[in-house]
């Protein structure tokens, strides 16, 4: 039990907010600081086989809640904050085949969408973002510039980035910079 209450401050609360860059309306980019609900890191046990069907059951039932990023490794995310009891309550679902670690304190999500979203993100990563190669629901851990982030496609023209909390504002500023030619509206949710 903690001796004092920890104060939760959203990582992007003081980040740049507003409209920047070109005045265009056609290919405008929207950036959004997404709710800091829960981020669960799920790691498969050695030799536990294919868990693709099992992992989404940890999630809150929304599409794209379970995001694979390597063999036996997932992030399960959602908008609702979870207590440690609620997280612990999910472990029986995995039946010892994988373990859960709460990373809600460590990583935050940024939403980015717009007609030019692929062009903007391609400035930072070498991953082929074409819809045919990176379909909706697909995830990839990669570098955006020098910052490591989990990139997930949530729609034809929308992506989410899961980034280490301490790098979030830096990535936020870079995403604004990368979007200037199309114009960008950045919403920190303040």
């Amino acid at each position: 039990m903690a001796d004092f209450a920890l104060l939760h401050r959203p990582a992007l609360a003081d980040a740049k907010s507003g409209s920047f860059g070109a005045p265009s309306t056609v290919k405008r980019i929207t950036l959004a600081a997404l709710p800091e609900g829960h981020v669960l890191h799920v790691l498969a046990a050695r030799g536990s086989g294919d868990l693709q069907g099992l992992i989404p059951r940890i999630g809150d039932g929304t599409p794209h809640a379970a995001r694979p990023y390597g063999p036996g490794q997932w992030f399960v995310i959602g908008d609702a904050p979870l207590s440690s009891a609620e997280i612990f309550g999910k472990t029986p679902i995995l039946d010892g085949k994988a373990s859960i670690s709460d990373q809600g304190h460590g990583r935050v999500r940024i939403g980015i969408n717009g007609a030019a979203v692929e062009t903007v993100l391609a400035k930072g990563t070498a991953v082929d973002l074409a819809l045919s190669n990176f379909p909706v629901g697909h995830s990839a851990m990669t570098l955006i510039g020098h910052i490591s982030a989990l990139l997930s496609r949530t729609g034809k023209e929308s992506f989410e980035l899961l980034v280490l909390r301490g790098f979030a504002e830096s990535l936020w500023d870079e995403l604004i910079q990368m979007s200037l030619e199309f114009g960008v509206d950045a919403h920190t949710g303040k």
């Binding site: 990023y69 390597g70 063999p71 490794q73 990839a140 851990m141 990669t142 570098l143 490591s148």
Partner: peptide
Amino acid sequence: HHTSGCRR
């Protein structure tokens, strides 16, 4: 080591 990817 694929440090900034799958970490394998």
